[in-house]
């Protein structure tokens, strides 16, 4: 694995893969959207069930991104590898974006269901907290001028966040059961009719590939920016 962790090697390997990643994302998203628009409306939720195909995969991707960010941070902290630092740094804005997408689609989905744009539902609330975790991570990165130090500080924060995230999830669930009774409809849940599973599956894969494409592009940009900066410092530009 570490053999491929050299920035130059990463550029060589990722550049030819990138169009395939992007292509797969496009195809999967197109298939997912077509399927999602062609399935029959839900007997309970009606047409609004289609928002699920945008919402649930966004939430999955946002969670996965935090996990990957924590793993990259750990690798960066333990093996002091600059590529891992770049990878972690590159994820944060994407994670924040998918979290925000999850929040917005959740709100749009909730409007007809709950009659309000926002309800302090357990899942929405923990995603709001996840968004703040991402924003704090980005703010810390930007506040420390020295790159290496910023990477390590943000890495520690990402790991502390990763340890705490399950506890936050649990506490928010606990809080929901404490404060809410029957008013909240269970979204998703185990009761998804199988006809909805295929579009959901396609969209989840599509989001994942979209995320991987954007992530790879951002890592490449990060590597090139670093190179340009060191050339400038060496007086060659």
């Amino acid at each position: 694995m570490l053999r491929y962790a050299n920035p130059t090697r990463f550029m060589q390997l990722s550049t030819p893969i990138l169009p395939w990643l992007g292509g797969a994302a496009l195809v999967l998203l197109a298939v997912g959207l077509t399927l999602g628009l062609s399935v029959p409306p839900d007997y309970q939720q009606g047409e609004t069930v289609r928002v699920m195909f945008l919402h649930v995969p966004a939430a999955w991707t946002a969670m996965m991104a935090y996990g990957l960010m924590a793993v990259a941070s750990l690798v960066g902290l333990v093996w002091r590898h600059p590529l891992a630092d770049s990878a972690a740094k590159a994820i944060a804005p994407l994670g924040a974006l998918f979290t925000a997408l999850g929040l917005v689609t959740g709100s749009l989905w909730g409007r007809p269901m709950w009659g309000a744009w926002w309800v302090w539902d357990g899942r929405l609330t923990s995603f709001l907290l996840l968004l703040f975790l991402y924003l704090g991570y980005i703010a810390l990165w930007n506040a420390i001028e020295d790159e290496t130090r910023a990477a390590r500080a943000a890495g520690i924060l990402a790991l502390v966040g990763a340890v705490n995230l399950p506890v936050i999830e649990f506490s928010v669930d606990w809080w929901t059961t404490l404060h809410q009774g029957e008013s909240i409809l269970r979204k998703g849940g185990p009761l998804i009719a199988s006809v909805y599973l295929w579009p959901l599956f396609a969209m989840a894969l599509g989001y994942t590939f979209l995320f991987l494409t954007l992530w790879t592009m951002r890592i490449q940009t990060e590597i090139l920016t670093r190179r340009a900066r060191s050339l400038m410092l060496a007086g060659e530009l």
């Binding site: 907290l129 703040f132 704090g136 606990w174």
Partner: peptide, 14 residues
């Protein structure tokens, strides 16, 4: 506060 407050959510809830 931005980096600490979300981590403190469980403390406030419990």
């Amino acid at each position: 506060p931005l980096i600490v407050l979300p981590l403190l959510a469980p403390a406030v809830i419990f």
